[in-house]
Each structure stands twice: as structure tokens, then as C-alpha cells.
């Protein structure tokens, strides 16, 4: 059956000839429906640490049903790693459903605030940039403004890029939250 196949596995446990392509790292958005109970966030966060998986961002809040919370977790890894992350999440008793939204048509948003140095000369320009990004000025000081922006990660990054020339003093981001578009529910 397999007499002249190469006799080697990759460190991932996959036989060499079964992986024609190089494994590439990808960003995945996981939507995790959990019981809204004390300690659940700690279990999820602890699992990532314990298994040496990295979290790019994590946002959590109650759902339409107060018995549940939904976590949106962004992770970067190759497919087998992300599959392991999902399986491991499923071993946690309060985890009800884990969905990988990456391949789905999902709406992704995050909220960010950025404090930018704004001298009187630059202020107008900065406000114009904010307007272009449909971002709001939520605070204005003598030498700084705070801009609030929401959108997908690319939009927030683009806004930050534009503002960098004026001097970004501080930023804060909520992390991504995602829902599946259309009739389908995020848990399907």
C-alpha cells in the first residue's frame, strides 16, 4: 500500500507527502458562545496560555440572551493550530459553541479611540481626516484631540496611519467583534 512513500512525518505529525503546500499562517476570527457565568473568561484565557496559543484580541459581552456571552477572539496560526484551538475551547464545559468566521461572510467591527497631538495649525486637517473616516472628535484639549472611530480593523489601521504624522499620544481599541451577515446565525 505504501512501500515507496517517503518515510517521514513533519513535526506537526502529518506525513510529508500529505502536505504538498507550505503551511501558512492566517488570521482567524473565532466566535465563542459561552455560558454567562463567573470564571468563564478566566478559563478561556487560561486555556490559551496553557496551550501556548496567542490571542490577538478578545472582546466579550452579554448576548441577546443574558444567560450567554459571546466572545470574539482573533487568533493567528496555521490551520491545524487553529483547529486545535477550537477543539480545545470545546473541551471547556461552559463553552457552548465555537465558530470560525474567517471563511464566512461576516461583519467585523472594532471601536478605537486615539489621542493625537493637534496644534492649532494642524487641527483643521486632523478634523478633516476624522470626517473622511466618519470618525468623531470626542474630546478636544489645547494641544490634543481624541478621535473615536469604529469599523473593521483595516479602517482603524488606516486612520491611525493617517494620524501618525501629527503624533499619536495614546490609543485604545476594543478588539474585534463579529457577526455573520444575513439570515444565518453566528452559531450555525
Amino acid at each position: 500500500m505504501s512501500t515507496d512513500t517517503p518515510a517521514r512525518r513533519l513535526p506537526t505529525g502529518v506525513r510529508e507527502e500529505e502536505v504538498p503546500r507550505a503551511v501558512d499562517e492566517n488570521e482567524h476570527t473565532l466566535s465563542v458562545l459561552v455560558e454567562n457565568k463567573p470564571g468563564v473568561l478566566s478559563r478561556v484565557a487560561g486555556l490559551f496560555t496553557r496551550r501556548s496559543f496567542n490571542i490577538d484580541s478578545l472582546a466579550v459581552g452579554e448576548t441577546e440572551n443574558p444567560d450567554y456571552s459571546r466572545m470574539t477572539i482573533v487568533v493567528t496560526g496555521d490551520d491545524p493550530t487553529v483547529e486545535q484551538v477550537m477543539k480545545q475551547l470545546n473541551t471547556l464545559i461552559p463553552v457552548i459553541k465555537v465558530s470560525n468566521l474567517t471563511d464566512d461572510e461576516s461583519v467585523d467591527r472594532e471601536l478605537a479611540m486615539v489621542k493625537v497631538a493637534a496644534s492649532p495649525e494642524d487641527r483643521n486637517e486632523i478634523m478633516q481626516i476624522a470626517e473622511t473616516f466618519r470618525a468623531d472628535i470626542v474630546d478636544m484639549g489645547r494641544d490634543t484631540v481624541v478621535i473615536e472611530a469604529s469599523g473593521d480593523t483595516e479602517k482603524v489601521e488606516a486612520l491611525f496611519d493617517m494620524l501618525r504624522q501629527y503624533g499619536i499620544k495614546e490609543t485604545v481599541r476594543t478588539g474585534r467583534i463579529s457577526l455573520v451577515r444575513g439570515e444565518k446565525s453566528t452559531e450555525d
Binding site: 512501500t3 512513500t5 517517503p6 513533519l10
Partner: peptide, 10 residues
Amino acid sequence: KIESFAPKAE
């Protein structure tokens, strides 16, 4: 060593 574990096997 994983690389040489059951290397010929399905």
C-alpha cells in the same frame, strides 16, 4: 521523535 513515528503508515 515525531518525524520518524510510523512514517509509512496511514
